[in-house]
């Protein structure tokens, strides 16, 4: 008999406790972030691994990123050219550049944002951005092509320069 009434009292207590919890939450501010209106990219952590970006002025086409990529989503084609120097973002020292990319593609659809390609880059050309919106209507559009016309022109001129030098030597 004692158990019976105790049961009822415990039941009422727990129900009132539950109601009190939800009532408290009624007057708390909501946790929802209204995404398209709020700039979420600014709220992301500093080392967030978003869509990759390549600074073609820094890239020395060393293929370190292509080799390390576990799912082979980076494709680089290049030509040899006259040796120049670029200032590495990492070490702040001049790094020799003897190859010039004609093609630098990253298939973002395949990319798993592991960040392995960022680590071996000697000049710090490839890096993650905080951009995460990649929706397109065609999956082919997700293959990001980083080589600009300027870079292609540069590659050709450097190649021509190199050939000129060789011809002069011989």
């Amino acid at each position: 008999m004692k158990h019976y009434f105790l049961d009822i009292i415990v039941g009422i207590k727990s129900i009132v406790g539950g109601l009190w919890v939800t009532l408290k939450h009624m007057f708390k501010p909501h946790q929802t972030i209204e995404y398209p209106e709020v700039n979420v990219a600014a709220m992301l952590p500093e080392r967030y691994r978003g869509i990759l970006q390549v600074d073609m002025d820094l890239c020395i086409s060393c293929l370190a990123c292509e080799r390390v990529c576990p799912i082979d989503c980076i494709k680089i084609e290049d030509v040899k050219g006259e040796k120049t120097f670029v200032t590495s973002k990492r070490t702040q020292k001049p790094t020799p550049k003897i190859k010039y990319p004609l093609r630098f593609d990253i298939d973002i659809a395949k990319c798993m944002f592991c960040g392995l390609c960022v680590e071996p880059c000697p000049t710090g050309a490839i890096r993650h951005t905080r951009k995460f919106e990649g929706s397109v209507t065609d999956v082919a559009d997700l293959t990001y092509r980083y080589v600009r016309d300027v870079d292609v022109q540069l590659a050709h001129t450097q190649k021509a320069l190199l050939e000129q030098k060789r011809r002069d030597k011989s």
């Binding site: 939450h25 009624m26 909501h30 946790q31 209204e34």
Partner: peptide, 10 residues
């Protein structure tokens, strides 16, 4: 709306 309020949603 009420359930959202109680669950810290909108």
């Amino acid at each position: 709306r009420l359930s959202a309020k109680m669950q810290s949603r909108i």
